[in-house]
Design a binder for these strands. Structure first.
Length: 637
RNA sequence: GGGCAUGUGGCGCAACUUGGAUAGCGCACUUGGCUUCGGACCAAGUGGUUGCGGGUUCAAAUCCCGUCAUGCCCGCCA
């Protein structure tokens, strides 16, 4: 628990105070203004340059009602405001009211907050008591993760971290489509092609899948595969047994990739189990009772089960201009579509179906926690039954996700629909044409753009650079450091842009160790660590005397940034946007580098103690922020 | 045909949800800084009519309308 004397968010504390002062000033100078608390807090921003630490544009709003110029109003309000605890000075400029914070008091608040909260600094309680399920990356169990799956997994992992940091109870879930067409094709290959696994299983299986695809035009093969597809759904069949064997081998291989990236799950849900426990029938029965399904007797949709799009368009106008009149849920053949299965699965996620799965332990993960998988032989566990479900799925599936969401509106579950969140992201493309010229030769075709290949390349590049470092002489440490640097580079590169953007994968960018990169941030961290070591820093709350040494220079810039971290973390969490965090760590790292260059720390004389404290607070904050994007810091590199 | 997303210096991006002061950052380019706390660094500089055209507003990259370009989607595939 946080103590009462330390506000979890220093920056919010300061702007709250400023806001209160403004309210009092407005009341005194312009009674009956109708300005609300939220108007005030929305008017407050952080200005650039030397103007001040906080700024309010509220006088522009007041100028209309009171028929005076903003400057005049600002001057009158400013005259009525006395200094507060954190706000030292109020001034008026061009109609804005600007505030300067008291460097001593504000620094004390920030530094104390960081020391007091440590690894929890920046976290909040806003999600307390709410369960969330995050689904990612749901790669089919017949191929290796490529760079696109990696983007998905990194997003899902980071969003899960953010939610945990804000006290949500998070379930990390992976959806395994083990009875789809792709799986049937892979199974056909397994049964009919002669080559045997000679490399990492997911990689091998993916290559074999490509081979099968080139054979589909040959007579009879498609038919054989379709026949298999049907038999697979029967859990007693030979096909189902084989599927279980090969898909699980593939899942293990994919998990190895996930582990190498520090990505873990709580539970994996197999589609075959969804079928076996008859989730679909139960969901459709319920939907039918509510009258949202229709079964046309004739016409285009004869004998299938559909949802009329004109109905769902009430809730999602994006679906209104559709040429089709309906969305098929169950085919006339009786087979369910993907939308149906997805709908049923989400009924389960939100706890709207009584039926539950059974689970068995699938793997022990390097983070010390097991990952479970749905299984006929398992035991009951408390997965699902959440308040919020987040699906990390590419933007190509927006339409389908919207249909599922709308079905919950139709059922009358408005809150469920609102809490079903499609975290849509732009696809990863590959650089065109020149792939084969990639140096090293081995990486020459698209299928080699796997997450495994990427990490291997990045490690090799990092090792080259780390080996040159005079700071690291221990051979064993080199490898570990290169690994961490490589992961930092890759993760940062993927997460630093808005999820929605389509990105072109580039080796040059992915192996970026300079500028706005992950390695730059952990370099800053390592440098700060070294200063603390050399300065003989001992954890302590800085004394009043030491705090007097704070200036309004680059030292205070660092402190202000540190003080805003809790607000940043909440913003990133509520918007599901990792790049809010990466952007912040970069700004903090740049600010610290400037401080480091311009103000001697160890040789700071009287100021040494407080500058060491700032350095430690920076270190803690960088570590906390990078942990959210799944990046481990290094003491040296 | 309809919908969604994207469009910001040469390149890659941020700021748009909640309008606010001189549109930020990285790469590249030019110049300067290591007997100094770690140069994977820092400082200074060149480069922008925020795709285009209207509108709203004291104020527009941000909101509204139109338009162009690119990508994705609109299947009894998943």
């Amino acid at each position: 628990m946080l103590s009462d004397c330390v506000h979890p968010s220093p920056s919010a504390n300061a702007s709250d105070e400023f806001s209160g002062m403004l309210a009092a000033g407005i009341d005194a100078a312009f009674p009956g203004s109708a300005i609300t608390k939220s108007d005030l807090s929305l008017s407050i921003s952080v200005p650039k340059g030397e103007i001040g630490d906080l700024s309010s544009s509220i006088c522009f709003k007041l100028s209309k009602t009171f028929k005076k110029s903003p400057r005049e109003i600002a001057a009158q309000i400013a005259a009525k405001i006395r200094k507060g605890k954190l706000v030292l000075e109020i001034s008026e400029l061009n109609g804005y009211i600007n505030a300067k914070l008291d460097p001593i008091h504000y620094s004390k608040l920030v530094l104390d907050s960081v020391v007091e909260n440590g690894d929890d600094y920046g976290g909040s309680e806003i999600g307390s008591g709410q369960k969330v399920i995050v689904e990612f990356p749901s790669t089919n169990p017949n191929k290796a993760w490529h760079v696109g799956h990696l983007k998905n997994a990194l997003l899902g992992d980071c969003v899960s971290n953010l939610l945990s940091f804000c006290s949500y109870e998070v379930e990390r879930e992976d959806y395994i489509d083990d009875i789809g067409l792709q799986m049937a094709q892979s199974l056909w290959g397994w049964m009919h092609l002669s080559d045997k696994p000679d490399k990492k299983f997911d990689q091998w299986m993916g290559e074999q899948y490509v081979k099968v695809n080139t054979m589909l035009e040959k007579p009879g093969i498609k038919e054989e595969i379709n026949a298999m597809l049907k038999r697979m759904e029967d859990s007693e069949s030979k096909e189902a047994r084989l599927i279980k064997e090969i898909s699980e081998k593939c899942m293990i291989a994919q998990n190895q990739t996930a582990f190498s990236y520090g990505i873990y799950h709580d539970v994996m849900i197999k589609e075959s189990e969804i079928v076996r426990v008859k989730l679909l029938e139960k969901a459709l029965e319920l939907a039918d009772k509510k009258g949202i399904l229709e079964r046309p007797k004739e016409g285009k949709y004869a004998n299938s089960t559909v949802v009329k799009l004109e109905k769902v368009a009430e809730f999602a106008k994006e679906l209104s201009g559709n040429e089709e009149g309906a969305k098929v849920i169950v085919r006339s053949s009786g087979a369910a579509t993907y939308a149906a299965k997805d709908f049923a699965f989400h009924m389960w996620k939100f706890g709207l179906l009584g039926t539950n799965f059974k689970y068995e332990k699938f793997l022990d993960q390097p983070n010390g926690k097991p990952v479970y998988v749905t299984s006929i032989n398992g035991v009951e566990k408390k997965f699902g039954g959440v308040r919020v479900a987040i699906n990390v799925i590419g933007s190509a599936q927006k339409y389908e996700q919207l249909v599922v969401k709308s079905m919950f509106y139709l059922l009358g579950h408005k809150e469920v629909a609102d809490n079903l969140i499609h975290l849509s992201y732009g696809e990863v493309r590959l650089e065109g044409g020149v792939l084969s010229t990639r140096k090293g030769g081995a990486i020459g075709s698209a299928r080699n753009y796997t997450a495994d290949d990427l990490l291997r390349e990045a490690k090799a590049s990092a090792l080259e650079i780390v080996s040159k470092s005079e700071k690291i002489t221990d051979k064993g440490a080199l490898d570990q450091i290169a690994s961490a640097v490589a992961l930092a580079a890759i993760k940062f590169e993927f997460l630093k842009v808005s999820p929605e953007n389509n990105v072109v994968f580039s080796w040059e960018k992915a192996l970026n160790f300079e500028g706005d990169s992950g390695p730059y941030c952990i370099y800053t961290y390592a440098r700060a660590t070294r200063v603390l070591e050399k300065g003989g820093y001992k954890p302590a709350v800085p004394s009043a005397g030491h705090l007097l040494q704070i200036t309004r220079g680059s030292d205070f810039e660092v402190i202000k940034l540190i003080g805003s971290f809790p607000e940043i973390a909440q913003k990133a969490c509520s918007e599901y946007r990792p790049n809010v965090v990466t952007d912040y760590v970069l700004r903090l790292s740049y600010a610290f580098s400037r401080f480091y260059e311009s103000m001697p720390i160890i040789k700071g004389g009287e100021a040494m103690q407080v500058r060491l404290a700032i350095t430690e607070a920076t270190r803690q904050t960088i570590r906390n922020a990078l942990r959210l994007v799944g990046i481990e810091t290094l003491e040296r590199m």
